[in-house]
Amino acid sequence: MQFLQTPLPYLLAGISVGGQYALIAIGYTMVYGILRLINFAHGDVFMVAGMFMVFLSASLPLGLAIPLVLVITVLLGFLIERAAYKPLRDAPRMSVMISAIGVSYLLQNCALYFTGGLAKVFPQIPWISDTVEVFGAVTKRVTLITPVLTVALVIALVLFIRHTKIGMAMRAVAKDFETSRLMGIKVNSVISATFIIGSFLAAVGSLLYFTNYASVTPTSGGMPGLKCFVAAVFGGIGSIPGAVIGAFIIGICENIIKGMGWTTFSDAFTFALLIVILLVKPTGLFGEKATDKV
């Protein structure tokens, strides 16, 4: 057990962050699978969820604040899709992406306005913020909860997509947008459902992530957002298990790199991984072959 003690805290942190990344990455991979859009605003939705938690928990009890944060974030994701992406459905892909960048800019600036640019302290959530000891490594309980919760949510999501009608519609739209439209699938409601699921998972991820990091700033969504997109690409965009595995790998590698004292490169590593993956196996670990991405 002795040799485990040095790398263990980093490994634990890695697994925990990996789980949080996984919840965000699912939003990216589902939206990309259906709309072929890198939803640059997704990372900021994640940040905004953290902000709502800060503001709501200041005046409401936690038992009320947490469900409210989930509902508001879902609503936000839905509204963003309706307002910023739906009008551009027939426009070139590039315009939708620019619109996503615009939404990201808007959300960050709004957060900046409401917080006055100060980092907000994330509330302590009892029980999950408590510290626990695992094999001699001290950590918060959220570290242990995250992977369990992530796996449970992912299994639920996979079952949902496999066995419900709307899940089947999602798979059909992801396979062929035009044909499924012709077959009478209500594409718009499928897309809305995708955004709702993605935002919900991002909100859960946000609650877990910021419990670990303790403060929220207007720009704290950007980097995790990009990393989660990389995780989605790594696992094979459009594939949910792929995104989850990619996110865990990125989270663990990142923390091991930090543990080795290369903190400056923990972000750069993710992008290096992305570039290698795009060049060597552009479909990712679990991606389908017939895509037009490269």
Binding site: R36, I38, F271, I275, P282, V294
Partner: peptide, 29 residues
């Protein structure tokens, strides 16, 4: 040489990644 083989959004995210790597590199001890 490697990046321009990619298309549209993949090119975007790869170049963005290189810019981030550069920033880390310039701040490196």
């Amino acid at each position: 040489l490697p990046v321009l083989r990619l298309k549209s959004d993949y090119l975007a995210i790869a170049t963005l990644g290189f810019a981030e790597i550069l920033r880390a590199l310039f701040q490196w001890d």
